[in-house]
Every structure is written in C-alpha cells, then in structure tokens.
Design a protein around this nucleic acid. Sequence first.
DNA 1: TGGGGTTAT
DNA 2: ATAACCC
Length: 483
Amino acid sequence: EPLGVEPEEEAGGDEEEDTAQAMERAEAGEAGGSPGAPGPEEPGGLAWLVPEGSSSSRVIVHVDLDCFYAQVEMISNPELKGKPLGVQQKYLVVTCNYEARKLGVKKLMNVRDAKEKCPQLVLVNGEDLTRYREMSYKVTELLEEFSPVVERLGFDENFVDLTEMVERRLQQLQSDELSALTVSGHVYNNQYINLHDIVHIRLLVGSQIAAEMREAMYNQLGLTGCAGVASNKLLAKLVSGVFKPNQQTVLLPETSQVLIQNLSHVREMPGIGYKTAKRLEALGISSVHDLQTFSPKILEKELGISVAQRIQKLSFGEDNSPVTPSGPPQSFSEEDSFKKCSSEVEAKNKIEELLASLLNRVCQDGRKPHTIRLVIRRYSSENHCSRESRQCPIPSHLIQKLGTGNCDVMTPMVDILMKLFRNMVNVKMPFHLTLLSVCLCNLKTLNTPKKGTIDYYLTPSLSTTSRSGKRSFKMKDSHTEDF
DNA sequence: TGGGGTTAT
DNA sequence: ATAACCC
C-alpha cells in the first residue's frame, strides 16, 4: 500500500445529489484502448514513458474544503460538533455543516427560513473573518509545501499544479512498480484505467498526491475537504465536486466530455457568471452544447472577442489558464453592511472601526499599503449590486508610520477617508447608505529605492532588464500612484 | 444576500 | 473607477 490514504470519515450515507447524479452511467468516450501507447512495461526504467518535457499535458488538483467556516467554528468550539450548525452574517446563514444540510438548511438561506426549517439549528456569528482567514492561509501554506505553485480561490479553495511533482515521482518509479500503480479515491464515471497510457499514469500519481494533501490537512489542521484531479483548472474544479463531503475524484481525459455535458446550464461553468449567462440566454444559449455549437463570429460580436473565445473554449472543457501562485494578498479590506446610515458622524464611526481593524492586519503583514479606498453602497430598490468608490495615494509620511504602533496614524487616515466620503456623498443632501468598506491596497514590501541609486538598479521589479520568472515583489502601476 | 477576494477594461 | 468574475 503505497501512498494513498483516505480519511473517509463522514461516511454514513450522507451523499449529496451531485454524487447520485454522477453515479448514473453515461457514455465513456473511447475508454479502454490507447492506440499510440508503447507496449507493456519493460525493464530499464520508465524513461520511454516520459518524452522529456514534450508532454504539454498538466496535472492539476483543486482542493475544496467542506463547509469551511462551519469547520473552523467546530474546531474553535468542539461542543458544536454533531449539532446542526449555521454560520450567520447579518440575517443570512452563509454556510452550515452537513448536519444542518440534512435538515434542509441551505447556503445563503435567510435566518428566519432556516430556523423555521430547522428549529434546533445552532447559529454562530461569522461576520469577523479573522479566524477563517488565518486558517485559510494555513491551508494554502500546507499545500505550498507540496508544490509552491498554489492559487487561492476565495478562502476555501486552492489549485495546485502537480505536473512537476508527478514527473519527479515517475522518474523515481521502478518499472515493476508500474503495474501496481493504483488510483486514490474515485475515478470519474468509473472509467477504466489504462496503465499503458502515460496520461492516465500521471493522473493516478496526481490522485495519490491529492490524497496525501487531504491527509495532511486533516492531521495537521483538523480539516476535511474534497479534491479533484484533472488536466486543467476548469476540469479539476468541476470534478472535485462530484463526490461531496470529504472525498476525491480523478478525471481521465476520455470522460471530460461527459463531465461538462452533465452541467445542466452554462451558468454552472466556472468563468460564466451572472451577467454573461444572462447575455447568453438572450442569444438562446442555455446548455453547454448550445454554447459549443454557437457561431463563434456572432458570439465574438455579442460578447467581445476575449470573453467569447474564452468561454467557448470552456464549453469544450478546454482551459489553458495557468495556476498562478497567489502569494500574499494584494489588498486588505473590511466592510460592514447595515439597514441605514444617513449621517456623516454615523459614517465616520463605522469608518473608524473598519480602519482600526485594517491597520492591525496591515501591521502584522509587514508590507506597506500605498493606496487607500473607500467604498459605499447607496440604498436603492433596484440595482442593489452597484457600489461606488474613491481612492487616493496614502501620503508617504503616513506610510512610514504604519508599522510603528504608538504614533497616531488613525486621525489623519480617517481625515483622508472622510474627504473621499464627501467626494462621493453630498452631505448637505439627505442620503441613505447600506454599506461602507475600506480597502488598503497597492502593497509594497520595501521603501522603494530612489531612482538613480544603486538599490534602484538592483531591484528586479524596477530595473529595465528585469525579466525574472519569480515574482518576489510585484509593483503594479496605477494611475493613482504617488510620486 | 455577506464579507471578503481577483483581473480586465 | 467600474465591471466582471470567484468563494
């Protein structure tokens, strides 16, 4: 028994619809034979299997924690384990554990509806994201130990590019071990594995690494989650959700079409959001097949060439986007929503609260934000989603003081924010806001070297000859830049 | 609908 | 600065 480990806990028949759906037999492409594959394994290593870098096929894993906020709460307070638990933000149950789901509670359900459905539901407040954020980064850091190429998606999902790690393991493999190679977890659509097919072999090794990742997450952090292994991010993400709590699935290339054809609507395709789905609907496109067969020219005219080409490739399961290492966050923000804020002092008090938390966070991070932004949402019956913002550079004398606790940086920063506020809101007129948010961004690691100095030319991101693949510091230019 | 995040235009 | 996307 090599590497595979399956913390298959939660067992007890608590499968979701997704699982049942996935179980139904669908056509399995050209499963089985792989025409071009070399003959059976021969002694002398596996070098023939690995056509030196010529393989453009990748191995990607998508790791998706089970009801993340609820898990963190149950770790904080173990007495909550076994009870139906919901995490509340304002009047919403934003997520809940599987006990609660069995009793009919859904994500983003109104608290009233949830209590009605499930009177025994235990609710904890989840408006302060601090512990979730911290645990989230612990997960990402754990995954980075396997391979440094980890991309975060929200707080509870990560992509990891396993291609190189798989390649290394394959080169260590002895040829007599090849016939004993096994998958860890489920194989999508129960497809047959062909050990003569190098692509299958690589994905199987990927599934074993995925199992090790989940085992490490459970042993070191106490967290369970799902994983999907496939040849690109789109497919890895779609397949990770096939068997749902705390299980993993690998997708072999022959069944990628059945995976995407099983989506009942284009909206379910990651990358096609609310707006694009509406526009597609107006064109009569609702199924994945509709999108696959729609005229590319017309689609480009309707959506622009960039979106059109990208989503049409997605509809075929094609996604060449790289796993981009997220690194440290690009921005820190805190927001608060409420029924009504209609006076300047009220706004100022909320803004002070938001800023105070942010300053603590940015202080712990160590880098310095060079831009500050204020975001508001105005009350309006329709157009609920729209926000307005104003941003400006942070004066350099304030940036310097940011790490040094005792100096009062709050007052001048609040003054700046209130100027931004009055720039957006005419305080002489009645107003009604439902959200305030403060964002610190444009983070820089060091006091940026002055032009003309030795340091300037030694700083990769500033020097004209810089073309390093490593992104130790990225200094994105913005038209709101200071200097 | 919350309280976050990202990239593209 | 906004708009789209993701969770």
